[in-house]
């Protein structure tokens, strides 16, 4: 099929959708027995109960709750006082795992860590603007994917990553193991705080993908047996950095 025909089909679908749209909404209003609404309704209840808004943990409480939750889920949680210790840990783990291929975000924190230099024998791919197919292939083959969490949530033991040109979604998804580096100041008590900051920072234009990751990929679909690493990474590290 020529590309024009493909364009035509999509245009035709768009035309039909625009044509149908108002009838669709009007039908809803009719069923609800009132005229179509065009002004924002006032929400009697919006968001979480007030006792939950007031729930806040101290800095140290947040870190320890996050780490406890992450470990309960079957992940590895470690805290480092300086970059050097963190790099040493990553190198040791990569060597123990005999990781040959790694992939990481192009992120200021990771640039400073210089993981490539400490693992000279490994093939380390850096996710930046380039050929899509090639990046996907690299991510799919990688033993370890390394990202820097935008935020973390103590209450649920969750790492939050936002997508971008240098922050591929596949890096936290396709490799066998995931290492998420978390700056301790980015650990929040609860999800609401993270949602509010994301909205505030990004305004109306959200990143295409916001991913909340809570432990290793898992399934209980075969006779209720818990298996990890079904599609996503089965080995997950939360590496907290204090500086």
């Amino acid at each position: 099929m020529n590309p024009n025909r493909s364009e035509e089909i999509l245009k035709e679908l768009e035309r039909k959708a625009k044509e149908k749209e108002e009838t669709f909404f009007q039908h809803i209003a009719n069923r609800l027995g009132r005229p179509r609404l065009h002004t924002p309704p006032i929400q009697p209840v919006r968001g979480v109960p007030s006792f939950w808004r007031q729930y806040h943990l101290d800095f140290e409480e947040r870190i320890s709750l996050f780490m406890a939750n992450w470990e309960n889920l079957g992940g590895v949680a470690k805290r480092f006082g300086c970059k050097e210790d963190l790099v040493t840990f990553i190198r040791n783990e990569a060597e123990t795992m005999q990781a040959k291929k790694l992939i990481r975000w192009q992120h200021p924190v990771l640039e400073q860590l210089e993981i490539e230099k400490t693992l000279p024998k490994a093939d380390v791919t850096i996710w930046k603007e380039s050929n899509r197919e090639q990046l996907l292939q690299k991510a799919a083959e990688a033993d370890i994917g390394i990202v820097v969490a935008d935020y973390a949530i103590a209450h649920t033991g969750t790492v939050v990553v936002l997508s971008g040109a240098t922050k591929g979604r596949s890096v936290s998804l396709l490799p066998t193991a995931l290492m998420a580096i978390i700056r301790t100041e980015d650990v929040k008590t609860k999800m609401g705080e993270v949602l509010a900051v994301i909205q505030k920072r990004n305004g109306p234009s959200m990143p295409a993908g916001i991913h909340f990751i809570t432990g290793p990929s898992r399934s209980s679909d075969i006779e209720n047996d818990l298996t990890i690493g079904v599609h996503g990474p089965g080995i997950v590290y939360a590496l907290l950095l204090d500086e």
Binding site: K128, L135, G164, S170, A208, G209, H211, F212, T214
Partner: peptide
């Protein structure tokens, strides 16, 4: 009975032109 599912993804539109995946 989970505090949160392993993945919760919020997807807004297709990938941005500069994004490598999505």
């Amino acid at each position: 009975g989970q505090k949160l599912t392993v993945y919760m993804s919020a997807i807004t539109g297709p990938k941005r032109s500069e994004d490598g995946d999505g």
